[in-house]
Design a protein around this nucleic acid. Structure first.
Length: 875
RNA sequence: GGAAGCGUAGCUCAGCUGGUCAGAGCGCACGGUUCACAUCCGUGAGGUCAUGGGUUCGAGCCCCCUCGUUUCCACCA
């Protein structure tokens, strides 16, 4: 059982081995009928567009921490993994590859052949992502791995589409949508990003028919002029209302358009007259609907101008803009050009400026779906961590417009609508059909596919077998928590919520745990274009998965961005090494075969102190984890292991460890093994590999740390009294070190220590060894008095320590120092006395706080007595 | 235009429902070849917790103002 550990921790040789064992043993795969309470998470499926980046590593690490924690607590724990087909994004990548490698477009291949290529791509990247997750240590149930376009998910998509259609919540409509001229597809509102760009207002004259005058309009997109079907003014605008009803003549084009009244026009802004282009602007579209205006689409799908643009036909929209403006100027229609910065919508995938245009698309009617989804968060059925992100959610859901779900792509779920050219009937069907149910003629399926988020929205239940009422769905749905970044709340979280409520009748999850972005050391977003991305695999290769996980989880707080830096990963590596060496030390000394705790009666003061500290740690870490304060929990574990366990307990334990074969030796070893083993368990969710490797080397029950019980607080290990006593010892040791440092006494200079104290329950010969080791003593003696006056006096609350270093003492300075301490102590005393004589404080503060202050006062008074004695002594 | 976050030691950040909350890591200074670890040990310097008000017996922690910074949403042509 016991084996030698290498001097430094080298993760490489053990991570893959341990992971394989875990998988083989089936620890990641919960049994539906295990009778345990369920805890489940579905992974936010990474896109099959590429490989995992740091953001994924963070997301996955947080989920694995929660999953491993709950698994150890005895839950039937399912972490369901999978990937997303990522419609546009993946298609773009494959097209790009095709273009670069073979000089072909997707049209050259044709739909069938192209999709074969995409499936090939998907297989490659899906397995790459999967192996990366395994490298990270993610304890996903690989037997339940899913893909958004696999058979089951596709079935769910069909089911949902048809059901929504039957309920009248999906419709096909001719509406204005966001069009990407590069991807050649419609986009939803969420898929448009807005970027500030410098631009211009072109002020243009529109002559009034039958009069000499003209109307001046201002536009940022003059090329849409060909689609103008009216000019609007506000009916309450005194300066403009006289124009209502008149007819204008479009410059260059010569077409006649009316002046209409609509309060959409803001009085006093711009020229007060707005050109209305219903086919190319969302607001104008609405104005057009109100006034029954014609929609004139002036562009082709690739954003070149069409025949409506007259002589500009075939020109790119920007080339046209330039030429048109020049012509307007030449013909005297251009009044002025005013620089104007404005937000331009761009495609979230390719960055091309989006062109709003009218088109036939499929939409989901959102209002009826949004209402229950809003309600679920309002009434606390679903909660965000941190809570403030629910505002984002409400903001989006309360202002939601219908969701454009059709995409003019090939990669995705094909829309299950079938058209019959013979009778004109359209059939929406869960199953593929080839003939029209009405007339029997052949049908053709809609060539569009669904928005990739349409299938992602179903992920929490489509992956569990819905629409069948499977055992998985029964047990693990709703899931407990969804872990994701704040950048995806609108795209995904909101849509899962309304989808779950609508289709399953139950929310998809109870908690949405939001984390921030991983930024580079300078705080910049990691991006391909900046080249500042850090590959998680490289970090794992160099430092190990546990170090990466530690670096990602330490010092973070929910919803806040973090920076990833060399310092952080090095600190993580050092911590790994510290754990490793602490374990190595314990194992080197270990002669006991079990890690059960000895009788309380046999425990030394420091044992009880350590166990009590550990006990508190168990409680706090559990509370922190339950509250999603993972960073805080990890910091506490770090401090406990490094400071309490290593720097204090192990150092104090060394004399007993050298006393081989004794009872004290055995007790100490058991305490060491118990506490180390327990700490490893607490740490396991964060750092699965190193903890497992060490735990296996220690005396242990069970096959694996990952299925061991998570340590819990127990009254049996609460030793408050001993904690206090031990702290007095530590305070004395620290005080001695400080004093020696101040006096520049090198550690090699040993000196006798005379400890004078009334507290013989603390300062007695059983703690001698502690001082010898840690306070550089050549010997320690105890008593109630020390008569000689040749010593440095170190005053603490419970004891005064004398060190006879006569040759190094400047008694003048010594006196000054003691007087200084006296002044400080007196200051504290008066401050506390004041506070305690404040009626408001005593009356209103909690009793515990008041008691605490009283205890502090008493301690200071005790110390003051000792300082006075010390001063007397020097005099 | 609306909303939110951040502004705490030189740097990166923790600080839960107001009462040991003034902290950690790194960096820096001084001292250490103690038989687990120099990827280490000991000690120390550095902050009026952005500014100005307010609430309270008591405020980084609550409220308001201002400044700086980041982000999200909307978008006026």
């Amino acid at each position: 059982m016991k084996k030698e550990l290498a001097k430094t921790y080298s993760p490489k040789e053990l991570e893959d081995r341990l992971y394989a064992t875990w998988v083989e043993k089936g620890y990641f795969t919960p049994q539906v009928d295990d009778g345990k309470p369920a805890f489940s998470i579905v992974i936010p499926p990474p896109n099959v567009t590429g490989q995992l980046h740091m953001g994924h590593a963070l997301d996955e690490t947080l989920q694995d921490i929660l999953i491993r924690y709950k698994r150890m607590q005895g839950y039937s724990t399912l972490w369901l993994p999978g990937t997303d087909h990522a419609g546009i994004a993946t298609q773009i990548k494959v097209e790009e590859r095709l273009r670069v490698d073979e000089g072909l477009s997707r049209y050259d291949l044709g739909r069938e052949k192209f999709l074969e290529r995409v499936w090939g791509w998907k297989d490659t990247y899906e397995s790459r992502i999967t192996s990366q997750l395994k490298k990270l240590g993610a304890s996903c149930d690989w037997t339940r791995q899913r893909f958004t376009m696999d058979e089951g998910c596709s079935k769910a998509v069909r089911e949902v589409f048809v059901n929504l259609y039957d309920k009248g919540l999906i419709y096909r409509g001719h509406r204005i949508i966001n069009w990407c001229p590069h991807c050649l597809t419609a986009l939803s509102d969420a898929e448009v990003e807005y970027k500030d760009q410098p631009g211009f207002f072109w002020h243009i004259k529109y002559p009034i028919k039958g009069e000499d005058g003209y109307v001046e309009v201002a536009t940022t997109r003059p090329e849409t002029m060909f689609g103008d079907t009216a000019v609007a003014v506000n009916p309450d605008d005194e300066a403009m209302k006289h124009l209502i009803g008149k007819t204008l003549i479009l410059p260059v084009v010569g077409r006649e358009i009316p002046v209409i009244a609509d309060d959409y026009v803001e009085i006093g802004f711009g020229t007060g007259c707005v050109k209305i282009t219903p086919a190319h602007d969302p607001n104008d579209f609405l104005v057009g609907q109100r006034h029954d205006l014609e929609q004139i689409k002036v562009m082709n799908d690739d954003a070149t101008m069409n025949a409506y643009a007259g002589k500009y036909n075939g020109m790119d929209r920007y080339a046209c803009r330039k030429a048109l403006v020049a012509d307007l100027e030449a013909e005297g229609y251009l009044v002025k050009v005013v620089p104007h910065d404005h937000n331009v919508g761009v495609c979230y995938r390719c960055g091309t400026t989006v062109e709003p245009l009218t088109s036939d698309q499929w939409f989901v009617k959102m209002k009826p779906l949004a209402e229950p989804a809003i309600e679920a968060v309002e009434n606390g059925s679903i909660s965000f961590v941190p809570e403030r992100f629910s505002k984002n959610y409400f903001n989006w859901m309360n202002n939601i417009l219908d969701w454009c779900i059709s995409r003019q792509l090939w990669w995705g779920h094909r829309i299950p609508a079938f058209y019959c050219d013979a009778c004109g009937e359209m059939t929406v069907s869960k199953e593929d059909i080839t003939v029209c149910p009405k007339c029997g003629a052949p049908v053709r399926q809609d060539s569009d596919v669904l928005d990739t988020w349409f299938s992602s929205a179903l992920w929490p239940f489509s992956t569990m077998g819905w629409p069948e009422n499977t055992a998985e769905l029964e047990k693990y749905y709703p899931t407990n928590v969804l872990v994701t970044g704040y950048d995806i709340i609108t795209f995904w979280v909101s849509r899962m919520i309304f989808s779950g409520l609508e289709h399953v009748g139950k929310k998809p999850f109870s908690t949405v745990f939001i984390h921030g972005l991983v930024r580079d050391a300078q705080g910049r977003k990691m991006s391909k274009s900046l080249g500042n991305g850090i590959d998680p695999l490289e970090i794992i290769d160099q430092y190990g998965a546990d170090a990466l996980r530690f670096a990602l989880a330490t010092g973070i707080s929910p919803g806040n961005d973090m920076r990833f830096s060399d310092e952080k990963i090095e600190a993580a590596r050092n911590f790994n090494n510290k754990i490793w060496n602490a374990a190595r030390f314990v194992l080197m000394n270990l002669t006991v075969e079990d890690a059960t705790l000895p009788d309380t009666a046999d425990l030394a003061l420091e044992d009880k102190w350590l166990l009590s500290k550990f006990n508190t740690l168990c409680k706090e870490v559990t509370v922190n984890l339950d509250n999603y304060e993972l960073g805080v929990a990890l910091a506490k574990l770090y401090d406990f292991l490094w400071d309490i366990f290593c720097d204090w307990y192990i150092e104090i334990a060394k004399p007993r460890l050298n006393d081989k074969g004794s009872k004290a030796n055995e007790t100490c070893l058991k305490v060491l093994a118990y506490t180390l083993s327990g700490t490893l368990k607490l740490l396991h969710p964060f750092m699965p590999f190193i903890t497992e490797e060490i735990w296996q080397s220690l005396p242990h029950d069970g096959e694996s740390i990952m299925i061991a019980d998570y340590p819990a607080y127990t009254d049996a290990l609460a030793f408050a009294e001993e904690e206090k006593k031990m702290e007095a010892v530590i305070a004395a040791i620290r005080a001695i070190r400080v004093r020696r440092n101040e006096m520049n006494v090198p550690p090699s200079r040993r000196a006798m220590l005379y400890i004078v104290s009334d507290a013989d329950d603390i300062f007695n010969p059983s703690v001698t060894a502690h001082f010898e080791k840690l306070a550089y003593a050549s010997g320690v003696s105890y008593g109630t008095a020390y008569e000689a006056s040749d010593a440095v006096q170190i005053v603490t609350e419970k004891a005064t320590v004398y060190i006879p270093l006569a040759d190094m003492i400047d008694f003048e300075k010594e006196l000054a120092r003691l007087k200084n301490e006296k002044t400080k102590t007196e200051g504290e005393i008066t401050r506390l006395e004041k506070k305690l004589s404040n009626e408001g404080f005593v009356a209103k503060a909690p009793a515990a706080v008041v008691e605490g202050e009283k205890a502090k006062l008493a301690a200071y008074r005790e110390t003051l007595v000792k300082i006075n004695e010390a001063i007397e002594k020097i005099k």
